[in-house]
Amino acid sequence: MDTVWIAMIPAILAATWRMATPLIYAAVGEVITERAGVLNIGLEGTMLLGAFTAFAAVYATDNLWVGLLATLLVGVVVGLVFAFFTVTVKANQIIVGVALNLLGLGLTGFLFRTLFLGTKNAVRTVPVLNIPVLSDLPVVGEMLFHQNLMVYGTLLLVPVASFVLYKTAFGLAIRSVGEHPRASDTVGISVSGIRYAAVMIGTALTAIAGAFLTIAHTNQFVEGITSGRGFIALAVVVFGRWSPKGAFWASLLFGVFFALQLRLQAMPDLAIPYQAFQVLPYAATIVVLLSLRGRSHAPSALAIPYEA
């Protein structure tokens, strides 16, 4: 038994980063959106739309770049719609988010059943980068040196997002609009413009998170494939204290629970019902949120529409 467990560790570690990857893309995107003062709880729907778009585009063209570009485009359009209702119409952000989740679920289900049901639906996937020798290192070899390119992409995404948010005028504008929109407006920053941009960056990255599920992690679309990851990403943002780096580490923590869930479910000789593992990521999300009491640093203007 012990040796079985030890043998599983490299695989669990590798799966941790892989399972954290969609959370990282979505949560970093949501960090940028929320720092601008907009709460988008429609991540789940956005992710589903991204997952379906990537799948359908790669299915049609057999080209991964087309898949990713189409995903980005759909992500930006979703952001445009969300920002129109929340920033221009100034509707309640939570309600619009709920609508977005329903639309994502309904549209992807409708299109999938109309276009793909009964077809052989496997697509090409993002290639794995295997670094010889290093990937054979004990314990961490597989995790660090044998992953698909979108997993490594998170190593690029997090520093870039941090740089934009903390070292550029645009990032400063995002943060100021989220903390004190009135003051930002007074110094000539377009509150609406910045919020539109921040929302669209967020949904584009969230759509990419969905694409990861269909063209990298697996090679097909399944209805409801996101299984709550969009909501878990919301908790990741809180746990990561609204910073890209924090979101990265918080995602890895949740990645552990997903990885354990996968591995333990596959263990045939365990006397524990598989639902006990299935429930892990969701229960862990609650526990993590409870452990945060009194330590949240939400942007001051979060979820409040700005009345010029």
Binding site: F85, A91, I95, V96, A99, L103, G106, R113
Partner: peptide, 20 residues
């Protein structure tokens, strides 16, 4: 496909909240 109902629901919510 009956999942179309979710789309209608989402659209109804968006219209209602904007009208509000």
């Amino acid at each position: 496909p009956s999942v179309l109902v979710f789309v209608v629901q989402g659209l109804v919510i968006l219209s209602v909240v904007s009208y509000g």
